[in-house]
Design a protein around this nucleic acid. Structure first.
Length: 710
DNA sequence: AATAAATGTCATCAA
DNA sequence: CTTTGATGACATTTA
């Protein structure tokens, strides 16, 4: 029993990791510059939120705007476009989220479309039906339609929250909105359906079906709405930006629920499963993660999960979820084969490359069976996501898993950065894992550490000598590797240089300390390294150089001084913690100096980024103002021309009238009145008098004088 | 190799 | 006094 629980828990953990990772990538729409501007407005820089701290938070699981993962995003986007081009039906972008979540949904096509089918599965089935044209999918029962209606609702509703005139929240506001949505502002039906159908409890989904069938919405409705919504970028964007994180969080909750289900009984699961909209206030992703990670004995392998899913014939109650899970897996694989048979092998190959890393990074003693994992991985996506994340999966490299492992480790340690750093300092510890054991299980730690850290071409920096290898021994991961940014920087290089670790083994590092403006503060050994590195820097292999570029100078400096903190930690930690760190640790003077420099520079870097962003915003705003003023000026000029034209017209008419009046005027003798001698004077009371011009002029002069006096 | 843009860094000021 | 953010100016990196 407990083993089953552990297996499933571990499997779900891995699955969640994959899902969350994929979700992160899908979230890239958020970083499309124009779209982002639409959402956040142009004043995001004023939010004063350090980018790195934002991305280091759970909320900031979204990527840094400048993250190199944008490449992955664009790749995924291009692939998605290809998918759309393949199928006759154009896939709305909204469906991407659904596909991704489908990985976690219950048996997608295990049987007929029953009431317990998840809404997201329904969505994915819709896609598969439209793309593969499977006959089975053509028989769509009312329950499926109802599920789709739910999908439609949950997609439309949250997006509308952001739609509105002038809806351009700043980044902080945007984050707040996301949090509000996560806390239950999103439609309850959506959360309810999603989570309960995920748990695979038919009795729960009956309610869902009843609820949904009240308002049956056809599949096409959903699609049409999505397509229409694509005309409105706001809708589309919001959907893409809010849902992935939502799914991720809910998935974590689902895992906890699954845990409860396995621990207790099935009937308890119903009670334990609460509607997501009643999610406790403090149930942040981090807490959920923490709760999850505190579950005992997570050390299981996917290999162990496989028998559970294979036991579908048994169909006992405890393995019900696992059964559905396994069926989903195979189903997804089949879908992939149907849609992209040519890519099947390629994808599998990439995944099998991935597995050893996952294996080594996920559990020290666990041995993942690539074949099993191959079946496992596709669950994170279905047909469409296989396309969009074909590269993404390859992008989910060891670094990502390492990050997660580091985070979990950190959580287990109470997230004490010091403790985490100590973990990193254990050369043989798999918990140090991160960059070490993942990409090349066979390589030794030293070689890996060097592979990750060295080779920046910056200035005179050079890492080509073996003499400093001792300095870095066991420090891998201590600097800049436990946070997403650095790992993401490293990712592509890992992918492209799968065998490079062997090469890198030969490259140990020298550090350039000329960067420091106060070289006298540095220990003499560093000066020595600098002189060496300057000479040998150009001799480094391009492979190492590419990886080395991923570490900043400060990171390398910190590494060289054996500073047991990451640059991000040093920069982003609060002042109190920072001071405590300086006092509690026996740091040398040079270390303290470097740490302070790192902190100062890191802070200033963020400040400079904000400042520049702000300046750009100001410039853009001024340009906008100029454009608006020019438009207004042209408009005023047109108005003036119009006015002068009408004035001349009026004058003409007045002259005509004047002449007409004088032509009919006669003096006492019946002679016509000379208009050059007389003028028409309009009194204030509206009466008109014929006044001799000299009197009229003198009267005008008097009026002028009076006005001047005033 | 030259160049512009982007980014990092330092000095300085103000809060 | 220290810390932090903002910003101009300069340096360095990147495209």
């Amino acid at each position: 029993m407990k083993d089953l629980k552990k297996y499933l828990t571990e499997g779900l953990l891995q699955f969640t990791i994959l899902l969350s990772l994929v979700g992160v990538r899908v979230d890239f729409d958020f970083y499309l510059p124009p779209i982002r501007e639409i959402i956040q407005g142009s004043s995001s820089a004023y939010s004063q939120i350090p980018f790195h701290s934002l991305r280091d938070t759970w909320e900031g699981s979204s990527l840094h705007p400048k993250s190199p993962d944008l490449d992955s995003f664009f790749t995924a986007k291009r692939l998605l476009d290809q998918v759309r081009a393949l199928g006759g039906t154009r896939v709305p972008r909204t469906e991407v989220s659904a596909w991704l979540v489908h990985a976690g949904s219950g048996d997608a096509e295990a049987g007929s479309f029953s009431a317990d089918q998840t809404l997201l599965t329904a969505a994915s089935n819709e896609e598969s039906s439209s793309t593969t044209d499977s006959p089975a999918n053509n028989h769509e029962g009312p329950s499926q339609q109802s599920s789709r209606s739910t999908l439609h609702q949950c997609h439309a509703s949250p997006s509308q929250q952001h739609i509105g005139p002038g809806a351009a929240p700043t980044s902080s506001e945007y984050t707040k909105e996301k949090q509000e949505e996560k806390l239950g502002c999103s439609p309850s039906t959506y959360d309810y359906n999603y989570l309960h159908s995920e748990s695979g409890k038919p009795e729960m989904n009956e309610d869902v079906t009843q609820e949904n069938t009240e308002e049956p919405i056809s599949i096409r409705d959903s699609t049409d709405i999505d397509l229409n919504a694509s005309n409105n970028q706001g809708i589309e964007i919001d959907r893409n930006t809010t849902e992935p994180s939502l799914f991720f969080e809910e998935f974590i909750q689902l895992l906890a629920q699954t845990e409860n289900t396995l621990e207790g009984t099935n009937e308890n699961a119903l009670n334990a499963t609460q509607p997501p909209n009643r999610m406790p206030q403090g149930n942040s992703v981090g807490e959920l993660w923490q709760d999850f990670l505190f579950l005992p004995d997570l050390n299981i392998t996917l290999e162990d999960i496989q028998p559970v899913s294979d036991a579908s014939s048994g169909r006992n109650s405890l393995t019900q979820n696992a059964d559905d899970f396994g069926e989903t897996l195979s189903q997804d694989v089949n879908l992939q084969e149907v849609m992209f048979p040519s890519r099947r092998e390629e994808t599998l190959a990439q995944r099998s490359e991935l597995f050893p890393r996952l294996n080594s990074s996920s559990s020290s003693e666990g041995s993942l069976n690539p074949a099993n994992l191959t079946q496992f991985l596709p669950t994170t996506d279905n047909s469409s996501r296989n396309l969009t994340t074909h590269d993404l999966l390859s992008g989910i490299d060891d670094n990502v898993f390492d990050e997660i492992n580091l985070m979990s480790l950190a959580l287990e340690e109470g997230f004490d950065p010091i403790e985490v750093s100590r973990l990193f300092e254990e050369p043989d510890s798999d918990s140090g894992l991160s960059l070490n054991s993942s990409h090349s299980p066979t390589s030794v730690s030293i070689s890996d550490s060097s592979s990750v850290s060295f080779g920046e071409d910056e200035g005179a920096a050079g890492y080509s000598s073996d003499s400093e290898s001792v300095l870095y021994d066991g420090l891998e991961g201590a600097v800049g590797s436990s946070w997403p940014e650095v790992n993401k920087f490293c990712r592509l290089d890992y992918q492209q240089n799968s065998d490079y670790s062997d090469n890198v083994t030969m490259h140990n590092v020298h550090h350039n300390h000329t960067y420091n403006q106060l070289p006298n503060q540095l220990e003499p050994v560093h000066e020595y390294h600098y002189s060496l590195s300057e000479k040998q820097g150009k001799l480094r292999s391009p492979c190492v150089t590419g990886i080395d570029n991923n570490l900043s100078r400060d990171e390398r400096r910190a590494k060289s001084l054996r500073i047991p903190f990451t640059v991000d930690e040093i920069v982003s930690m609060p002042v109190e913690m920072f001071n405590n760190m300086l006092t509690k640790h026996c740091l040398t003077e040079s270390q303290v100096t470097v740490i302070r420099d790192i902190r100062r520079r890191g802070k200033n870097k963020v400040a400079a980024q904000n400042c520049r962003k702000r300046k750009l915003d100001v410039i853009l705003n001024l340009e906008d103002d100029v454009c608006q003023l020019q438009v207004r000026k042209e408009k005023l000029l047109k108005e003036r021309a119009q006015c002068s034209k009408s004035m001349s017209h009026m004058k003409q008419k007045l002259n005509d009238l004047y002449r007409d009046v004088f032509s009919k005027l006669r003096d006492e003798q019946g002679r016509p009145v000379n208009p050059s001698l007389y003028a028409l004077h309009c009194n204030s009371d509206g009466s008109i008098m014929v006044v001799p011009r000299r009197l009229f002029k003198s009267g005008q002069k008097q009026d002028m004088q009076k006005e001047k006096k005033k």
